[in-house]
Every structure is written in C-alpha cells, then in structure tokens.
Amino acid sequence: MATKASKTAARLMISPAVILLLMWMIVPLAMTVYFSLLRYNLLMPGMESWAGFENYQYFFSDPAFTSALVNTLLLVGGVLFVSVVGGVLIALLLDQDFWGQGIVRLLVLAPFFVMPTVSALVWKNMFMNPVNGIFAWLFKSVGLQPFDFLTAAPLMSIIGIVSWQWLPFASLILLTAMQSLDSEQLEAAEMDGAPPLKRFWFIILPHLSRAITVVILIETIFLLSVFAEILVTTNGGPGTATTNLTFLVYVQSLLQFDVGLGSAGGVVAIILANIVAIFLMRMIGKNLDA
C-alpha cells in the first residue's frame, strides 16, 4: 500500500528525469522543425528568412536523397539479414554441448565491444586494402586478382563491416532466448521421430520468433543512424554510393552549412525512425504487462 506521502515523494523522485528528458526531446526537436522551414545558411548569417516547405521540396527532389534513402534501406536490410540468419545459426551451434563453450561465446561476442571507428578502420586497411590487406593476399594466393572492396563494392563492404559488429548482438540475444526453450518438448518431438529440420521449423523457430522481432527492431533503430563507419571508410562516396540518410544530413548541415536543408532531412529521418519505433514500443509495452 502506497501512502499519500510516499506518492508525493515518488513524484519528486521521478520529476528530474522527466523534466530533463522532456527538455531534451522538445527543445532541439522544435528547433529542428523550425529551422527546416527557414532559408538559413551559416555562411550567410543574418539572412534567415521564411521558406515554408521549400527545403522539403529541395530535399525530396535532390537525387542524393533518393540514393540516400535506397542506401539506408539496403544497409539496414543487409545487416539485418546477415545478423538474424547468422545469429540463429550461431545460437543453434552454441546451444550444443561442446568443449570450451564459455570461451567460444566470449570470442563470438567480442566484436560488439569494438568502437565503430576502430572496426571500420581495421577492416578498411588491414583486410580490405587491395594492396596490403589480408583479403588481397588470400585472393592472390589462390590465383585471383585482388579486389578493391571499398571502391568496387563500397556499400556491400560497409554492410560487411557493420554486420560484423551486429552479428554478435543478435547471436547473444538469440542464444539467451534459445536457452529458455523447454528441452523436454524437443525430446518428445525427437522420440516421435521428427527430423532435425522439422524440429527446428516447428519448435525452435516459433520459440525464437519473439527474440528475432526484438533483434530486428532494436538493430533497425541503431542501423538507421550508422555514421562513423561511413565517415572513416568512404566518406559517403564514391559519389553518393555509400551516403545514407544520416550522412546526407551531416553533409548538408555541417559541411555545406545549409541549416534549413539539413533540418528538413533531420525531420524526415525522425519520421522514418518513428515508424519503426511504434512497432518496437508495442512489443516492449506488451511485455511490461506480462
């Protein structure tokens, strides 16, 4: 039983967090929306004027926007595909009984803790470099031409790098979910003669479906904002081949100083992220009741 006094105390205890987050959410957000309606370039101070939806028109008619949107979707989709399919396979494997389980789990998890700039630069220079990289050496040693990953297939290369960082996350979460599966159910199915593939399809996969959804939603939130990996490897290029929405807004606002246009892009990014967020929030909200 909560008394009246404790309720008041509780409110006081929650309020700092609520006020801070409210400010954090409303102030910059309102400013972004406001800027997006202005003609506002940092190179021309004092020349701000009302623009209405002009920035949005520019933004949407900019060919860079279309390619940024496509790149964003490919990047998110590609990494999700690798990390979910790979994650399920790795979780299945690590759930088996073998020697050194704990150590292998640590090895698989490790890339998740590597900061984005380090992993991007290590992959770019020490693996994908067409002259000195390990891949170039591997290609040559089997008699193939070395492949210049970041020039010939830049987006694929970035998808590869980012997947390496997120595969461990998916594996760990799916493994955790796998371990809560009732093994008696599997044994019963085995006794009834269900082959491994059927056991996987009808028992394991449905059990994992919830965890897979969570992985997809959370990774999407982070993957929509991939930035550092692009900045240090390709800088968005060649051309706009690896420019995603986040990077495009960065270029427009901090490199071309077009605050209005950059803000319009920011608003578009917020709307995109919100579509994903709604689904994620529903899942988590349901869990809160349970």
């Binding site: 959410m25 910059p28 400013m31 904002s225 930035f227 803000s263 920011g266 992220a273 994620l280 929030m281």
Partner: peptide, 16 residues
C-alpha cells in the same frame, strides 16, 4: 522515456 531513445541523433544534430 523509451521513445526519446528512438529519436535519431541526426534529427537534432543541427540545433544541438
């Protein structure tokens, strides 16, 4: 509170 975490950083980059 969780929903504030969903805000993409680039959406508030300029004002910040």
């Amino acid at each position: 509170m969780l929903s504030t975490k969903m805000l993409p950083p680039v959406g508030v980059l300029v004002p910040l």
